[in-house]
Amino acid sequence: MSEEEKKMIGFKCKKCSRINYPKRARCLSCKGMEFEEVELGKECELVTYTQVYNPPAGYKGDPPLMLGIVKFPNGVLAMGQLAIDHPKDLKLSAKLRPIWGMLREIGGKEVFGFKFELAKKEQTSKLK
């Protein structure tokens, strides 16, 4: 699978249908142990965010490090880095989308995962 095709996955409990994210040994709602992998969504909405001016050791970008919590249409919330250049006008309901990328280094090793960027940015770049 190419990096662009990587999907953000949640773990839907086969017993009670709760989508657990992140995955756990047992469903947080019903202790079920069987899960179906489901895509969380191509678009999500910003719930809250911050710009961290003293990021932890291993973060390779220039401060501030932007972090936020997003909500997917299925109700699942996730935390992650925000790849947003000019956050001045950022609204709490901004539409975002997950993208795969390097998060930080830990013990000299690069750690990858999903970040979130403005969904609109994608549309404008497509127009170009």
């Binding site: 992650g80 880095q81 998060l103």
Partner: peptide, 9 residues
């Protein structure tokens, strides 16, 4: 996995 690795403090 869901917080620390992302740089959360």
């Amino acid at each position: 996995e869901a917080e620390y690795l992302h740089g959360a403090t």
